[in-house]
Design a protein around this nucleic acid. Structure first.
Lengths: 191, 191
DNA sequence: GCCCGCATGTAACTGGTTACATGATTGT
DNA sequence: ACAATCATGTAACCAGTTACATGCGGGC
């Protein structure tokens, strides 16, 4: 059985509007991209199985090949069921933290470089969220989904702002490592 | 070839002190647990291959079975090499966000429940970080590693605090969905 | 006529977890 | 003696990505 997580994403996507498998993947990349991803290798088999189970149906096989999928009432029921399932948490694997944890073997400068990179990525995410926020506010249909979508954008923003704040603190701490703490008195040494 | 990520974690762990495979896993769970995980199915094959390549060596096979591994100079070189490698970012898969994004089909109350759960987990992480922080400060050997370990703890704290702040905001927003916004004038309606 | 973007699908591989089989050591 | 914990290892399975094979339609 294909992962229920992919099933959720596919059914969820089609609950917004009917699409082809290709468009579904684009939509997931562009809209859910900051917290979800799916590849063709997942989407197509998943769509095939969902069709077999009657949770989606194929519309307009007009030109051979391309076909648009729509969610069925049974699919909506299934989606609600899937959304209500308890979230299985994935074992964490944060490459940046792994490197910093053993940062002693890397040295302060290499660590600073890693942290700077992380900071830049967080800043970039912040501006992306700003753009997505505007997009969501400008879509006048789909107002029923809007508050929920804003929730996820807000989560991204909080996380990114935290990353930036942490990075600044970390950079300061790493600087301290190069110039070890001066003694309490006689804090400034003449050359 | 076993993942270089597991290799990094194993070599890194042994760079702190020699251990058995079992102890290595415990150490990873307890110390790196909040941002890294490894299972026996990864650790043992990885140790075997590292031994074959001369990056770790087996100490004291005193009693049959249990053997302690130590990192070799070649292993230290390899570790530094691995730590310097660019970080490959993993495609995001955040189950909570996926559910909230399609929260319209779940309804405000179920979403609040999810957010409350996330908030509680973040709070719990915060108190764990506090405990780990104390542990790290109390270890008087390993002072060379300390500043780096503190960096990762701090990252966890920033992230957890952000999660709590977001959750509070999200709960307020979800409450608004139940009692839709009153009109600008005549803000309070008599029964 | 040809390239690019849309579109579908499959096969191979990879990174990883889980479950199982096995046995030594220690404490009660 | 027996249970709990330490310890090692393997086999089966799983989710997911990547790469590949294929073809249609439209614009230059």
């Amino acid at each position: 059985m294909r992962s229920s997580q992919t099933e959720t994403a596919v059914l969820g996507g089609l609950s917004v509007e009917p699409m082809t498998g290709y468009a579904l993947r684009e939509a997931i990349r562009e809209v859910l991209g900051h917290f979800w991803s799916e590849s063709f290798g997942q989407i197509y088999p998943s769509l095939a199985e969902l069709e077999r189970k009657g949770h989606v149906r194929r519309l307009g096989s007009a030109r051979t090949g391309a076909s648009t999928f729509a969610i069925t009432p049974a699919g909506m029921t299934r989606l609600k069921e899937l959304l209500a399932q308890p979230l299985q948490q994935v074992p964490p694997r944060n490459g940046l933290m792994l490197r910093l944890f053993f940062g002693r073997h890397l040295g302060p400068e290499a660590c600073r470089s890693l942290v700077r990179q992380a900071r830049a990525e967080a800043e970039s995410r912040l501006s992306q969220y700003e753009a997505i926020y505007q997009d969501v506010m400008n879509e006048d249909d789909r107002t029923g989904d809007r508050p929920y979508w804003l929730l996820t954008i807000s989560a991204g923003q909080h996380a990114a702002r935290a990353a930036v704040a942490w990075a600044d603190e970390a950079l300061a701490a790493l600087d301290q490592l190069d110039q070890p703490a001066p003694a309490a008195s006689e804090s400034r040494r003449k050359i």
